[in-house]
Protein backbone atom coordinates (compact mmCIF):
# COMPACT_ATOMS: atom_id res chain seq x y z
CA UNK A 1 0.00 0.00 0.00
CA UNK A 2 1.50 3.37 -1.03
CA UNK A 3 1.40 6.75 0.73
CA UNK A 4 -1.50 8.00 -1.45
CA UNK A 5 -3.69 5.05 -0.49
CA UNK A 6 -2.86 5.48 3.21
CA UNK A 7 -3.62 9.22 2.94
CA UNK A 8 -6.97 8.50 1.29
CA UNK A 9 -7.92 5.85 3.86
CA UNK A 10 -6.91 8.08 6.78
CA UNK A 11 -8.94 11.04 5.48
CA UNK A 12 -12.05 8.90 4.99
CA UNK A 13 -11.46 7.19 8.37
CA UNK A 14 -11.32 10.55 10.16
CA UNK A 15 -14.28 12.09 8.35
CA UNK A 16 -16.58 9.08 8.63
CA UNK A 17 -15.47 8.27 12.20
CA UNK A 18 -17.05 11.50 13.47
CA UNK A 19 -20.34 10.60 11.76
CA UNK A 20 -20.29 7.05 13.16
CA UNK A 21 -19.76 8.36 16.72
CA UNK A 22 -22.88 10.55 16.34
CA UNK A 23 -24.95 7.68 14.89
CA UNK A 24 -23.73 5.38 17.69
CA UNK A 25 -24.96 7.81 20.38
CA UNK A 26 -28.46 7.85 18.87
CA UNK A 27 -28.66 4.05 18.49
CA UNK A 28 -27.32 3.57 22.05
CA UNK A 29 -29.99 5.91 23.48
CA UNK A 30 -32.75 4.11 21.54
CA UNK A 31 -31.39 0.69 22.53
CA UNK A 32 -31.36 1.59 26.23
CA UNK A 33 -34.75 3.36 26.24
CA UNK A 34 -36.79 1.46 23.63
CA UNK A 35 -35.13 -1.95 23.39
CA UNK A 36 -32.19 -3.33 21.43
CA UNK A 37 -34.33 -5.28 18.94
CA UNK A 38 -35.95 -2.03 17.79
CA UNK A 39 -32.73 0.00 17.71
CA UNK A 40 -30.80 -2.67 15.80
CA UNK A 41 -33.65 -3.23 13.30
CA UNK A 42 -33.70 0.50 12.54
CA UNK A 43 -29.92 0.45 12.12
CA UNK A 44 -29.86 -2.60 9.83
CA UNK A 45 -32.67 -1.25 7.59
CA UNK A 46 -30.86 2.10 7.32
CA UNK A 47 -27.60 0.32 6.43
CA UNK A 48 -29.39 -1.68 3.69
CA UNK A 49 -30.84 1.53 2.22
CA UNK A 50 -27.40 3.14 2.37
CA UNK A 51 -25.75 0.16 0.65
CA UNK A 52 -28.30 0.25 -2.17
CA UNK A 53 -27.87 4.01 -2.54
CA UNK A 54 -24.06 3.80 -2.62
CA UNK A 55 -24.14 1.12 -5.29
CA UNK A 56 -26.69 2.96 -7.46
CA UNK A 57 -25.09 6.40 -7.03
CA UNK A 58 -21.54 5.12 -7.47
CA UNK A 59 -22.28 3.17 -10.67
CA UNK A 60 -24.45 5.95 -12.16
CA UNK A 61 -21.98 8.73 -11.41
CA UNK A 62 -18.97 6.73 -12.61
CA UNK A 63 -20.49 5.43 -15.86
CA UNK A 64 -23.03 7.99 -17.03
CA UNK A 65 -21.93 11.44 -15.85
CA UNK A 66 -19.31 13.55 -17.64
CA UNK A 67 -16.05 13.63 -15.62
CA UNK A 68 -15.91 17.45 -15.39
CA UNK A 69 -19.57 17.71 -14.40
CA UNK A 70 -18.96 15.00 -11.80
CA UNK A 71 -16.07 17.02 -10.35
CA UNK A 72 -18.35 20.06 -10.21
CA UNK A 73 -21.21 18.19 -8.45
CA UNK A 74 -18.91 16.46 -5.98
CA UNK A 75 -16.91 19.64 -5.35
CA UNK A 76 -20.10 21.61 -4.63
CA UNK A 77 -21.36 19.01 -2.14
CA UNK A 78 -17.96 18.79 -0.44
CA UNK A 79 -17.72 22.55 -0.22
CA UNK A 80 -21.17 22.92 1.34
CA UNK A 81 -20.53 20.11 3.88
CA UNK A 82 -17.03 21.36 4.63
CA UNK A 83 -18.13 24.95 5.17
CA UNK A 84 -20.91 23.85 7.53
CA UNK A 85 -18.39 21.90 9.62
CA UNK A 86 -15.86 24.73 9.48
CA UNK A 87 -18.49 27.29 10.52
CA UNK A 88 -19.47 25.22 13.56
CA UNK A 89 -15.81 24.68 14.49
CA UNK A 90 -15.07 28.42 14.20
CA UNK A 91 -18.13 29.38 16.28
CA UNK A 92 -17.20 26.76 18.92
CA UNK A 93 -13.57 27.91 19.11
CA UNK A 94 -14.71 31.53 19.37
CA UNK A 95 -16.98 30.56 22.27
CA UNK A 96 -20.18 31.52 20.39
CA UNK A 97 -21.53 27.96 20.26
CA UNK A 98 -21.48 25.25 22.90
CA UNK A 99 -19.04 22.38 22.38
CA UNK A 100 -20.40 19.16 20.88
CA UNK A 101 -20.97 16.88 23.87
CA UNK A 102 -21.93 13.25 23.18
CA UNK A 103 -22.94 12.63 26.82
CA UNK A 104 -25.33 15.59 26.79
CA UNK A 105 -26.79 14.52 23.42
CA UNK A 106 -27.19 10.99 24.77
CA UNK A 107 -29.05 12.31 27.84
CA UNK A 108 -31.35 14.44 25.64
CA UNK A 109 -32.11 11.54 23.26
CA UNK A 110 -32.74 9.25 26.23
CA UNK A 111 -35.15 11.73 27.85
CA UNK A 112 -37.04 12.14 24.55
CA UNK A 113 -37.23 8.37 24.05
CA UNK A 114 -38.51 7.76 27.59
CA UNK A 115 -41.16 10.48 27.27
CA UNK A 116 -42.50 9.30 23.87
CA UNK A 117 -45.58 7.04 23.72
CA UNK A 118 -45.34 3.33 22.90
CA UNK A 119 -46.84 2.03 19.64
CA UNK A 120 -45.70 -1.41 18.57
CA UNK A 121 -46.04 -3.11 15.20
CA UNK A 122 -44.62 -6.60 14.47
CA UNK A 123 -42.89 -6.47 17.84
CA UNK A 124 -40.97 -3.32 16.86
CA UNK A 125 -41.41 -0.04 18.69
CA UNK A 126 -42.30 2.69 16.16
CA UNK A 127 -40.53 5.64 17.82
CA UNK A 128 -37.29 3.77 18.48
CA UNK A 129 -37.21 2.37 14.95
CA UNK A 130 -37.77 5.75 13.25
CA UNK A 131 -35.19 7.59 15.39
CA UNK A 132 -32.52 4.87 14.93
CA UNK A 133 -33.27 4.59 11.20
CA UNK A 134 -33.20 8.35 10.63
CA UNK A 135 -30.05 8.85 12.72
CA UNK A 136 -28.08 6.13 10.95
CA UNK A 137 -29.41 7.13 7.51
CA UNK A 138 -28.60 10.83 7.92
CA UNK A 139 -25.10 10.33 9.35
CA UNK A 140 -24.54 7.42 6.96
CA UNK A 141 -25.52 9.52 3.92
CA UNK A 142 -22.73 11.92 4.81
CA UNK A 143 -20.34 8.95 4.99
CA UNK A 144 -21.58 7.77 1.57
CA UNK A 145 -20.91 11.21 0.07
CA UNK A 146 -17.46 11.28 1.69
CA UNK A 147 -16.56 7.80 0.38
CA UNK A 148 -17.87 8.48 -3.14
CA UNK A 149 -16.28 11.92 -3.27
CA UNK A 150 -12.83 10.96 -2.09
CA UNK A 151 -12.93 7.60 -3.87
CA UNK A 152 -13.96 9.00 -7.26
CA UNK A 153 -11.65 11.99 -6.84
CA UNK A 154 -8.65 9.74 -6.24
CA UNK A 155 -9.72 7.41 -9.08
CA UNK A 156 -9.94 10.41 -11.37
CA UNK A 157 -6.31 11.21 -10.48
CA UNK A 158 -5.31 7.69 -11.50
CA UNK A 159 -5.08 5.95 -8.12
CA UNK A 160 -5.75 2.21 -8.54
CA UNK A 161 -8.49 0.72 -6.27
CA UNK A 162 -9.37 4.20 -4.99
CA UNK A 163 -13.03 3.39 -4.27
CA UNK A 164 -11.99 0.22 -2.47
CA UNK A 165 -9.48 2.12 -0.30
CA UNK A 166 -12.03 4.84 0.51
CA UNK A 167 -14.66 2.22 1.45
CA UNK A 168 -12.12 0.42 3.63
CA UNK A 169 -11.36 3.69 5.47
CA UNK A 170 -15.07 4.06 6.29
CA UNK A 171 -15.52 0.39 7.23
CA UNK A 172 -12.52 0.47 9.59
CA UNK A 173 -13.95 3.65 11.20
CA UNK A 174 -17.36 1.96 11.65
CA UNK A 175 -15.73 -1.14 13.15
CA UNK A 176 -13.56 0.98 15.49
CA UNK A 177 -16.58 2.95 16.75
CA UNK A 178 -18.70 -0.20 17.29
CA UNK A 179 -15.88 -2.06 19.10
CA UNK A 180 -15.06 0.97 21.27
CA UNK A 181 -18.78 1.49 21.99
CA UNK A 182 -19.35 -2.15 22.97
CA UNK A 183 -16.27 -2.07 25.21
CA UNK A 184 -17.13 1.15 27.09
CA UNK A 185 -20.94 0.72 26.88
CA UNK A 186 -21.60 4.46 26.92
CA UNK A 187 -21.40 7.42 24.49
CA UNK A 188 -17.91 7.91 23.06
CA UNK A 189 -17.41 11.28 24.74
CA UNK A 190 -13.62 10.83 24.92
CA UNK A 191 -13.31 11.11 21.13
CA UNK A 192 -11.98 14.66 20.41
CA UNK A 193 -14.94 15.34 18.12
CA UNK A 194 -14.62 19.13 18.04
CA UNK A 195 -10.99 18.98 16.93
CA UNK A 196 -11.77 16.19 14.44
CA UNK A 197 -14.64 18.22 12.99
CA UNK A 198 -12.36 21.22 12.57
CA UNK A 199 -9.72 19.14 10.77
CA UNK A 200 -12.33 17.40 8.60
CA UNK A 201 -14.03 20.74 7.87
CA UNK A 202 -10.67 22.10 6.67
CA UNK A 203 -10.03 19.01 4.50
CA UNK A 204 -13.53 18.91 2.98
CA UNK A 205 -13.46 22.65 2.22
CA UNK A 206 -10.00 22.32 0.66
CA UNK A 207 -10.95 19.44 -1.64
CA UNK A 208 -14.30 21.14 -2.29
CA UNK A 209 -12.68 24.34 -3.60
CA UNK A 210 -10.16 22.33 -5.61
CA UNK A 211 -12.74 20.16 -7.38
CA UNK A 212 -15.47 22.72 -7.84
CA UNK A 213 -13.03 25.10 -9.55
CA UNK A 214 -11.70 22.35 -11.82
CA UNK A 215 -15.21 21.05 -12.55
CA UNK A 216 -16.68 24.46 -13.40
CA UNK A 217 -14.72 24.13 -16.66
CA UNK A 218 -17.60 21.90 -17.82
CA UNK A 219 -19.58 25.12 -18.39
CA UNK A 220 -16.79 26.83 -20.35
CA UNK A 221 -16.96 27.00 -24.17
CA UNK A 222 -14.31 24.19 -24.29
CA UNK A 223 -16.38 22.02 -21.91
CA UNK A 224 -13.33 20.50 -20.16
CA UNK A 225 -11.98 20.76 -16.58
CA UNK A 226 -9.91 23.83 -15.64
CA UNK A 227 -6.43 23.38 -14.19
CA UNK A 228 -4.92 24.83 -11.03
CA UNK A 229 -1.43 26.29 -11.33
CA UNK A 230 0.87 23.64 -9.88
CA UNK A 231 -2.00 21.09 -10.11
CA UNK A 232 -2.12 18.90 -6.97
CA UNK A 233 0.39 21.05 -5.05
CA UNK A 234 -2.19 23.86 -5.02
CA UNK A 235 -4.16 21.73 -2.52
CA UNK A 236 -1.55 22.70 0.10
CA UNK A 237 -1.99 26.41 -0.67
CA UNK A 238 -5.80 26.13 -0.41
CA UNK A 239 -5.49 24.28 2.92
CA UNK A 240 -3.15 26.96 4.31
CA UNK A 241 -5.63 29.59 3.07
CA UNK A 242 -8.49 27.94 5.02
CA UNK A 243 -6.36 27.59 8.18
CA UNK A 244 -5.45 31.30 8.05
CA UNK A 245 -9.05 32.37 7.32
CA UNK A 246 -10.47 30.22 10.14
CA UNK A 247 -7.92 31.54 12.68
CA UNK A 248 -8.68 35.16 11.67
CA UNK A 249 -12.42 34.46 11.99
CA UNK A 250 -11.97 32.96 15.47
CA UNK A 251 -9.97 36.00 16.66
CA UNK A 252 -12.43 38.49 15.12
CA UNK A 253 -15.52 36.74 16.54
CA UNK A 254 -13.91 36.43 20.01
CA UNK A 255 -13.21 40.18 19.93
CA UNK A 256 -16.83 40.84 18.90
CA UNK A 257 -18.13 38.68 21.76
CA UNK A 258 -15.96 40.56 24.28
CA UNK A 259 -17.15 43.94 22.93
CA UNK A 260 -20.81 42.90 23.06
CA UNK A 261 -20.51 41.59 26.63
CA UNK A 262 -18.69 44.78 27.67
CA UNK A 263 -21.40 47.02 26.12
CA UNK A 264 -24.18 45.03 27.79
CA UNK A 265 -22.45 45.28 31.17
CA UNK A 266 -22.16 49.04 30.61
CA UNK A 267 -25.90 49.32 29.88
CA UNK A 268 -26.78 47.21 32.93
CA UNK A 269 -24.55 49.34 35.14
CA UNK A 270 -26.18 52.54 33.81
CA UNK A 271 -29.68 51.13 34.31
CA UNK A 272 -29.00 50.09 37.89
Amino acid sequence: MNADAIGLMSTVFLASGVEFVEAFTIVLAMGVARGWRTALTGTVVALLVLGLLTLTLGVTLKNYVNASLLQFIIGTLLLVFGLQWLRKAVLRSAGLKSMHDEEQIFAEELALAEAAGHRQRWGIDGFGFVVSFKGVLLEGLEVVFIVITFGLGAAHRGMPDAMWNASMGALVAAAAVVVAGVLVRKPLAMVPENLMKYVVGLLLSTFGVFWVVEGIGFFSPAGSSLEWPGELSSLGAILIGWVVISRILIIALRRFDRKLTHSLQGFEAEAS
Partner: peptide
Protein backbone atom coordinates in the same frame (compact mmCIF):
# COMPACT_ATOMS: atom_id res chain seq x y z
CA UNK B 1 -9.77 31.96 -13.57
CA UNK B 2 -9.11 29.03 -11.21
CA UNK B 3 -7.14 31.11 -8.68
CA UNK B 4 -9.61 34.02 -8.90
CA UNK B 5 -12.65 31.78 -8.37
CA UNK B 6 -10.97 29.83 -5.55
CA UNK B 7 -10.08 33.06 -3.75
CA UNK B 8 -13.59 34.45 -4.28
CA UNK B 9 -15.21 31.31 -2.83
CA UNK B 10 -12.96 31.43 0.24
CA UNK B 11 -13.40 35.14 0.91
CA UNK B 12 -17.17 35.04 0.42
CA UNK B 13 -17.46 32.03 2.76
CA UNK B 14 -15.36 33.82 5.39
CA UNK B 15 -17.59 36.89 5.15
CA UNK B 16 -20.78 34.82 5.48
CA UNK B 17 -19.44 32.87 8.49
CA UNK B 18 -18.33 36.12 10.17
CA UNK B 19 -21.59 38.01 9.57
CA UNK B 20 -23.84 35.07 10.39
CA UNK B 21 -21.84 34.38 13.57
CA UNK B 22 -22.08 38.02 14.64
CA UNK B 23 -25.79 38.40 13.92
CA UNK B 24 -26.96 35.14 15.50
CA UNK B 25 -24.75 35.63 18.58
CA UNK B 26 -25.89 39.24 19.04
CA UNK B 27 -29.54 38.14 18.78
CA UNK B 28 -29.03 35.36 21.34
CA UNK B 29 -27.15 37.60 23.77
Amino acid sequence: FSVALGAAIMLAAALVIYLEGRISHARKT
